[in-house]
Design a protein around this nucleic acid. Sequence first.
DNA 1: AATGCAAATGCAAATCGTTTGCAACTAAGA
DNA 2: TCTTAGTTGCAAACGATTTGCATTTGCATT
Lengths: 145, 145
Amino acid sequence: MMASKTESGSSARPDYEGLLRNAGVRITRPRRIILKILAEHDDHPDAMAIFRRAVRLDDSISLSTVYRTMKLLEDKGAIQRHAFEGGPSRFEPADGEHHDHLIDIDTGQVIEFHSERIEQLQDEIAKSLGYEIIHHRLELYGRKK
Amino acid sequence: MMASKTESGSSARPDYEGLLRNAGVRITRPRRIILKILAEHDDHPDAMAIFRRAVRLDDSISLSTVYRTMKLLEDKGAIQRHAFEGGPSRFEPADGEHHDHLIDIDTGQVIEFHSERIEQLQDEIAKSLGYEIIHHRLELYGRKK
DNA sequence: AATGCAAATGCAAATCGTTTGCAACTAAGA
DNA sequence: TCTTAGTTGCAAACGATTTGCATTTGCATT
């Protein structure tokens, strides 16, 4: 059994602002803008891409703040950071369940997929080596046929 | 079916020097030293670790040369570079067949494994998404039980 | 609405791993 | 041995990310 979704997905996004407020984090102008950007896009942007989008809404925003906000969101579990091959970290909202990634090596497009069977096999392998998996990374780098 | 080996493996190493010579590459003192280090160790050292070992054999070697040599070897297909999470690139001789990695979160130790079943599933997934896999990366981050 | 203060910001400078320009050196074929 | 293109060491540049610091700002409190 394998499920996948592309960039054009339309899953409901969590209420980041509320989430942060509950964590005792201040909702500032730059943060509101960055959250808005994350809510409106369903791709896997890097910090610079988020920054460029943010500047269009408020040209006083700094790249440092983007990085600081991404780290904050990551720490709060609101987003996930992925270090794909040969590029800057890219981010995605941590809404749904775990999935792995297929990266189009020509376009950089990211397609998400999940295989319960693969996860099982990973567990078996780790177990047979005497390890417990804390997390894993499975990335397929491919080209459209 | 799943095979694995740890750091203490003892597989035969290719003749790097001959390989490079055939490729029209000069065998210099620093290169000979770096090749010797690669041949003698079976772990997954990063550039700095290789540099430290090299300096013990010839304290005039520079870190740049280590990086340049690693790149050269990578281009010639003699070694593989792995960018594991949150650290510098680590290298391993590209002797055997393809394998994936289990990284001990506590020690950084790398254990190699291979699962033909997982590879098959990956191919199926890519195929069903209309992609051809060029390469992939599967890393399990775990803790010894 | 005005106040106080810790939290958050923008900026520039620092960091880390890695690459590169350049002048000096050296491998190896003639 | 000579020649010269390939290599080196060094220091400076690099790209992504983080950080120090003085200034601003959210927001709980009056």
